[in-house]
Structures are given as structure tokens and as C-alpha cells.
Nucleic acid binder design. Sequence first.
DNA 1: TTACAATTACTGTTATAACGGTAAAAACGT
DNA 2: ACGTTTTTACCGTTATAACAGTAATTGTAA
Lengths: 69, 69
Amino acid sequence: MDNFNLGSMVRDHRKKAGLTQLELANLAGVGKTTVFDIEKNKETVRWNNLLAVLEVLNIKVEFTSPLTK
Amino acid sequence: MDNFNLGSMVRDHRKKAGLTQLELANLAGVGKTTVFDIEKNKETVRWNNLLAVLEVLNIKVEFTSPLTK
DNA sequence: TTACAATTACTGTTATAACGGTAAAAACGT
DNA sequence: ACGTTTTTACCGTTATAACAGTAATTGTAA
């Protein structure tokens, strides 16, 4: 029912990668607080920082709309 | 070949919705500069601001990974 | 071309995310 | 239980995104 939670997804992937928040932060080139905030679903993080974290975890982002074919 | 451009997508959708940058900004509750920046692919915008703009344009975001089934 | 509308670019101010440090609280293993 | 690691929470400082002007440039329609 579409209550998707990005924070949980990030956390799950990080765990499966065997990384701590600090290690992930360093790999992504962001501060540990940012990783913490992302996992807590704080949406005021910067888009580029979120992207950097997702990239490390091999999570792809897709944008779709009714106009998308 | 995967040179996806979010800025162009936002611009296209905005045009098709018949909105100016300023109108979109107001609808999304962000400043006009932010809309401009998004269309220019400036990735340092805040995630929540980007989300607000995408929502107005009815663009959905999806996160996928090899672990996603 | 001429007006008008929209976009782009720049500026100064304000709000706040990012960051590292620290410390307390949870989680984990032995 | 115990010690170790990780996570959570809070803090002060710094960097910078967000914002509303404004003006210049580009685009559009007549």
C-alpha cells in the first residue's frame, strides 16, 4: 500500500553491504550526520548528498509520469 | 544510452502543464530560483524541495536495486 | 519590428543543512 | 553478566541553499 520508506531501504542496503553509518558516510563523501538523517527520512538533506549515498549502495533512481512512455 | 536529464524532464512537464517557473514555484511552495536551479540540473537543491516540485508535476520517484524484487 | 512575457543571471540577506565532536543509549558479540 | 561497537542525540561552527529583489537577456506573439 505504497507507504514506501527510503530510510529503511537505505538502512537495509547498508546492512547487507556490511557497512556502518560512518563507513557509508566516508565512502559517499558526506558526514555521518547526513547518513543518519537519510535513514531517519529527514527530507531536508541535499539531493546530491542523497544521490552520493544511493550510488554507493547501488540504488538507482527512476522518475516516471503518465507522460513517460 | 542513459544520459537522463531530470532538468529537461521537469521543464517538459511544466510546459505541458502550461506553467511558468514562477507559477510552478508558488504551487510547490518554493522559490523561483529553486525551480530554475532544478531545471538547470543543479543537484545541491534540497530533496524536499525537489520532491515538492515533482509532486506538482505528477512525476513519481522510484528507487530500485538488484536486491529489489 | 515592436511589445510583452518568460527566462536567465546576479546580488545581499537570511535560514539552515552539513559537519565533526562528544556523550548517552542501544545493539551486538563473547 | 561484561566489554565493544554502533547508533542515536545534541551541540556550536561553518558553509551554503533558499529566497526575493532586480536587471539583462531571450523568447514569443501581434
